[in-house]
Amino acid sequence: MKKGIIIALLALGLGQVALAQNRYFTRDGHVEFFSETPLENIEATNDKMTSVVDFENGKFEFAVLIKSFEFEKALMEEHFNENYMESNDFPKASFVGEIEDFVGIRNSNFPPGVEMAAHGKLTIHGVTNDVVLPAIVTPDGDEYRLSSIFTVKPSDYDIEIPNTVRDNIAQEIKVTVSAVIVPLKK
């Protein structure tokens, strides 16, 4: 009896390890955003995005540190952190969600050009909204390339833009996420 329990527990433990091996991750994913107005274009990049995709169930998460965004002009970076994103109070932006029909698409080995839909919660500036983000996964040897392009409205996330710079900052900001994800080994 006791032996049986031990075996059962061991099997459970092994099962969890096996599950973990089906997760893919990155620590140096790329996020950039672009704000385009007739007056001024503003862009920033971040190469420190972390992300995990669970290939068993399509669960998908990513997160970036706001302070890691780099701008062309140093003062823009300072104002982005201090005045708009308030990165001391809200250091991270993140997405937690699930990719629709991920297992089916995985089983057909991610046919090229198939755009999946990731349903979940996007948190920016301490405000969480339900969103659907597009996601494309492309196999590349043992790794996978992951990308997602979507737009974010600052007003949806309580990011206050004063009247004096209202014409310099776009109402909708284009965000591009791209990464190479590799197997997560425990």
Binding site: Q16, R27, V52, L184
Partner: peptide
Amino acid sequence: AQEGSMLDLLPED
């Protein structure tokens, strides 16, 4: 395991 973020599973940077 279900409640925690999967990102917490990543090794410490």
